[in-house]
Nucleic acid binder design. Structure first.
Lengths: 222, 222
DNA sequence: GTGAGTATAAAACGAATGTTTTACTCCTGC
DNA sequence: GCAGGAGTAAAACATTCGTTTTATACTCAC
């Protein structure tokens, strides 16, 4: 009576999995330092010592939270681009690349909370690193940047490597800004964000950046 | 001998001012939670109790660090835009607005460390708020956004209010991304960042965004 | 000179942190 | 039946945190 054994969604999972889920949510909402091991274990309905038993410490639990999601997220980002370029063949253009990338970037923010949390975690980690220096870059940021730069150069032949990287910066900067903006508008603990607003942002960023890339690729006159 | 009375730059200032400077630097480097009152007072060469004596607490010290800089920074951002529009008169165009705003946004990152620190602080505060909700928005973000949106609509008459705000989002997103990118490249404790690299970024963002704004303002065909 | 007020310093306080120790309950293999 | 490992829980651990208290110089008005 006093202890409901299965009245919550993920109650039947392993303690280890419950810890990962609670930690992911709390780290994303409050950051590494502001989240205590006691809060995590309380949310996971288990003892304080569980974190050290299953993960060896708070820092390694934080690392495992990232490693569980990063590979899948990187494959989505890079895979969608390659797939779209392949399907379009010779019809591929800058707008296709940008709408595809923008969509793959924003999808996790809409449909499921899983992806939104790892985006929040990455944004925090960029500003306040608590992971080994290479983790985020080697398994996520650098491959995605290279993938987008390569795709842009395929559809905009006038784009040299340096300009392509600058355009990647402009596009990613706009998209990351969406995350910050959406959190400030709807709060950090909202389960998901309104799809129509995000889609309006996606259409704008695609249009804005398509013109930007073409201008940079085509020299001053076009 | 053991106590150098004036061997440091700001040694002769008041304890209150030394606290503000140490706090600004440490909060910018490590964030609010990761910076302890003891670290701040040690860096300011004074006692732990000084923070509570002069500011009433860590949270109010943090607030005062912001209030000391925000007004000046807002005036730079908005003032430069009005000044440039006034001087150019009828020759004002989108590129002028964007190069002016980009320059005013990036200048604090180059010439002096004072401005760079408040930029870092604002970036952290956006992700992990520790100020009263309204401070950052009412005295900084909203006025600057309105100023840039207004300037854009003056030089791009086809731009409606909603599209102008979306363009502001795109431009600010790129510029904020520069700060994050520069810190990751050159470390959070670098006194300033290489001017030539920032100027290259500024030129790119201006060109990229000019084309973006014109495309959004001009409808699909132009 | 003296007392009120200001500024600084040293020490102590209670609370919260991550981690470790210890004990208890299962379950499994034999 | 029982040794032994895995999982969990309660308690204690040492540290660190922001803050408060107490005491000590210094200044200036009277």
């Amino acid at each position: 009576m006093t202890e409901g054994p299965a009245h919550q969604s993920a109650e039947s999972d392993t303690t280890r999995e419950r810890l990962l889920e609670s930690a992911e949510r709390l780290f994303a909402e409050r950051g590494y330092d502001a989240t205590s091991v006691r809060e995590i274990t309380q949310a996971a309905h288990c003892n304080v010592a569980s974190v050290n038993y299953h993960f060896g410490g708070k820092d390694n639990l934080y690392l495992q939270v990232f490693q569980r999601r990063l590979d899948a997220l990187r494959r989505i980002r890079t895979g969608r681009l390659e797939q779209a370029l392949e399907e379009a063949g010779d019809d591929a253009d800058v707008e296709l690349v940008l709408s595809t990338f923008t969509a793959s970037f924003m999808e996790p923010l809409i449909d499921e909370s899983e992806g939104r949390l790892i985006m929040e975690l990455m944004a925090r980690e960029m500003l306040d690193p608590h992971l080994p220096r290479h983790v985020l870059f080697e398994t996520m940021i650098d491959p995605v940047r290279r993938s987008l730069a390569s795709a842009l150069r395929q559809v905009a032949p006038g784009l040299d490597q340096v300009s392509a990287e600058l355009c990647v910066h402009s596009i990613v900067g706009q998209l990351v800004h969406v995350i910050h903006h959406a959190r400030l508008r709807h709060g950090p603990d909202a389960p998901s964000w309104p799809a129509e607003e995000l889609e309006r942002m996606a259409r704008h960023i695609t249009r804005f950046s398509t013109a930007g890339v073409l201008a940079v690729a085509g020299g001053d006159g076009r």
